[in-house]
Amino acid sequence: MTYQQLLVEVKNNILYITINRPQKLNALNREVLAEIAHAIASAQTDKQVQAILLTGAGEKAFVAGADISEFQSYTLEEGKQLAKDGHDNVFNAIENSSKPVIAAINGFALGGGLELAMACHIRIASDNAKLGLPEVTLGLIPGYGGTQRLAQLVGKGLAFEMIFTADMITAEKAHQIGLVNHVVALSDLQAKAEEILEKIKQRAPLALASAIKAVNAGFNPKTNGYQTEIDEFGNCFQTNDFKEGTSAFLEKRKANFSGS
């Protein structure tokens, strides 16, 4: 696929996905969402890709929200379909990605932009970032998982406050409440993400995928998280990476994982 709204490249086994609409503050429209869906899906079977870094072009915004002009006239059914397609193809796909996904939040992450960041496994924010869910000012609520993931990350009380007031919070406040993992200077944002990704790349790929599945299961009311952990723990025993990891530990050497 030739991407029109994204910059996509693989370097050192990291897939870099940059939403490239800086003139629109990287707002999400149907084309952007379709391209993100394709990039994330393709990464799952690309053996070159061990982890994913998602960010926005420019210094002003990660994603400043959804492109409101596209859905202003939607009906009830069209609105439901919009949310369902986003959940299935983009936001849940990121959350359930077998390859770890880090969001590098470079500026505004509002509405669908914050929801996109929350779907990622780890969030790093630049110190100029502003985060929020302003949907109630438009007569809407967050529709891409925001009501669920925000409460999971910061608790119900803070989630209600952020959604009810529609206020933006600073990167430092987001760090204090557990919404982001790290806050760094804008000039250090990519380097910090890459520092974490380099560590991740040294770990066993199949074990990382199992960990993602097990952690996510704990937040799925239809799934027994503990049973998923038991199953995934057991699955690790039949991998070559388990044999390599334990052998390397006993032999006091660095493991060389193959992802098999």
Rank of each mutant, 00 (worst) to 15 (best):
L206Q: 12
A193S: 15
I177Q: 01
A193P: 14
L197N: 11
N220G: 07
G178T: 07
A207V: 13
E172G: 00
F160R: 11
A211P: 05
Q190Y: 14
Q148K: 15
V154W: 03
I196S: 07
E198T: 13
R203S: 13
A151T: 15
E195L: 03
A151K: 06
A174E: 04
I196H: 11
N181G: 05
V183M: 01
V154C: 03
Q152L: 10
A159T: 07
V183E: 03
V183C: 02
I200W: 15
L186A: 07
V184Q: 03
S187G: 04
R203M: 15
I177P: 03
Q202I: 12
K213L: 10
L197Y: 15
M168G: 04
A214M: 14
A211L: 14
Q148G: 03
E172C: 00
I196Y: 15
A171W: 03
A211M: 13
L158K: 13
G155W: 06
A151L: 06
F160E: 13
A191D: 11
A204P: 12
L186Q: 08
F164Q: 12
M168F: 04
Q202L: 13
A209T: 02
G155E: 04
F160I: 06
E161F: 06
R149E: 11
D167C: 02
E161H: 12
E172A: 09
Q148Y: 13
Q176E: 13
K156L: 10
R203G: 10
I196E: 11
G155Y: 02
K201C: 09
N181W: 04
H175F: 02
N181T: 08
A204Q: 12
V180E: 01
I212Q: 12
A174S: 07
L206K: 15
F164N: 09
G178N: 03
T165G: 04
Q152T: 12
L158I: 15
R203N: 11
H182M: 05
N216D: 07
D188M: 04
I200F: 15
